[in-house]
Design a protein around this nucleic acid. Structure first.
Lengths: 189, 189
DNA sequence: TTCGATATGTCGGATATCCAACACATCGAT
DNA sequence: ATCGATGTGTTGGATATCCGACATATCGAA
């Protein structure tokens, strides 16, 4: 928006790092991925990584945010409405991401990942709720975003607990009524 | 060998440029590819291109050389002998490269491309002949390399003239006797 | 012809990236 | 406990890359 163009080098480098991380995540568990692995794959210096990211969790956070945003822009296509399609695309994005992240669960790391995913979901939901020009005040929107983010994340955990037997689209469609129940979403502008 | 490690940035940038060029070649004719196209795809500045390459023909030359060398290292695997397998892998590398380069022929550009391909072939053949520790003198090896390079390039032209009906492997295998005829290759060390 | 529009190549000053080295933490082996 | 090996995070000086501007060439349209 108001930012005066970022250096192409940082865009390129960030992309190289993120792509490398996604690439590595398909092969290794999260806990086995080191900064050196990432920078080697990305063909950049290790120090440069720290120029862009705090640590590997910061990277995880930004990759996830990117993945969610891209998926949203592709699917709902600026519809800016919290309809079923949006929920489906967010949910499938999460499950895809989690599948690629770590095949085996590993205590201690999963908690951190869970927190990061949920926080990002909250941010996304809050942004979308803002755009609906709802009459509600900020505090109310914040609460709705929190509930939705915990809810949809919980749904993904439940989906994994069922050994991913049902396709994500189907699973989340049947769960949407429970997500929305009791929450007045101000989507009718 | 004796070179004291090149800066990782130049390796990365060269790879980005070359990959982008190959990528673009699959979509456009060679004559329609501009430097700006390449640098945009590679996410680098246009000036940086000229830091690494003289012009687009220099790039073409280096990409081709790279492609041939990689294919050789993969197939004959340091065998360092001019056997049938080597000819086959070189020939298929050329035909693949030409197919990806330009679908429609275009006068004036094809000549330049032809010259570059042939020159690179000559370099490759000369290097391989050197390694065979043949008793022949430099001048003789040079001549053999020239004849082989023109010969195998001619074969690829002939193959295209037949509308690529035969698989490259088959075509070149039947042509190898003609390539070798009359040339004493000092491969028996 | 003459004119815009576009591509090529070049240059000097600004900046992101690289390198080597450092301190620190973790962890398995002896 | 002590050690070596490995990973994290930081720093200052060197260098590749970026930017904006410039000159030149080509080419299709007015």
């Amino acid at each position: 928006m108001t930012q005066s163009k970022t250096d192409p080098r940082v865009l390129r480098t960030r992309k190289l790092i993120m792509d490398s991380f996604i690439e590595l995540s398909a092969k290794k568990e999260f806990k086995d991925i080191t900064i050196k692995d990432i920078t080697t794959e990305a063909m950049i210096n290790r120090a440069t990584f720290y120029y862009h990211f705090e640590d590997i969790y910061d990277l995880l956070e930004k990759v996830l945010s990117e993945v969610l945003l891209v998926n949203l822009n592709c699917s709902s296509y600026q519809n800016d409405e919290l309809n079923e399609e949006v929920f489906v695309s967010i949910f499938t994005a999460i499950t895809n991401f989690q599948k690629s992240l770590s095949n085996r669960c590993h205590r201690g790391y999963e908690d951190t990942i869970a927190r990061i995913i949920r926080e990002q979901l909250e941010i996304i939901f809050y942004k979308m709720l803002e755009k609906t020009e709802s009459v509600k005040e900020e505090e109310a929107l914040r609460t709705i975003a929190v509930i939705l983010s915990w809810g949809i994340y919980g749904a993904s955990v439940e989906w994994k607990r069922f050994d991913m037997k049902v396709p994500p689209e189907e699973f989340i469609k049947s769960a949407i009524p429970y997500l929305m129940s009791g929450i007045e979403i101000g989507s009718r502008k």
